[in-house]
Amino acid sequence: MSTTTTQASLGHPAIAPPPALGTVTLKINGVERQLEIAPWTTLLDALREYLDLTGTKKGCDHGQCGACTVLVDGKRINSCLTLAVMKEGADITTIEGLGTETNLHPLQQAFVDHDAFQCGYCTPGQICSAVGMLTEGKAKTTAEIREMMSGNLCRCGAYTNIVSAIEEVLNQPKA
């Protein structure tokens, strides 16, 4: 004997209309960018889908993996857990704003030198997270780096080299 069921039956029949578009201005990597988005667009999707800044990655869309880490006013956040409209006026830095292929940020260079990635998909998030962590100034030891980088998953398992790369930059004499 079979029974019946209905998927997504909650809330029906009322389907709320989608939210209206509005103009949002975001300051990203020092440049003001205007975009037409609805309030439900996350900062992550705004970057990837509306601004073609695809260096910031999506690994879960739920704040569970850290692949989407960017710096907002110098602090590392999961861009999938914030709405773009909430960051008007803030200073947003993505991986594209840290360095270029011919002029790498010291952490980017250290990641290359230590082979701190394999597939590279978690890498921009790891690097932005590490930049944020170094600014926080709390991690002094290997164990502390490991602890404070634990919000960034790496399925390739590059942790050993990620930690070495960060240690190298942490221990570099300040210019």
């Binding site: 073609d52 360095g99 590279g120 890498t123 921009p124």
Partner: peptide, 16 residues
């Protein structure tokens, strides 16, 4: 490596 650490490496969902 440089493409991967700068966000220049493009994955399947990143061709806009």
């Amino acid at each position: 490596g440089p493409a991967k650490v700068t966000g220049g490496a493009k994955y399947a969902a990143e061709f806009n």
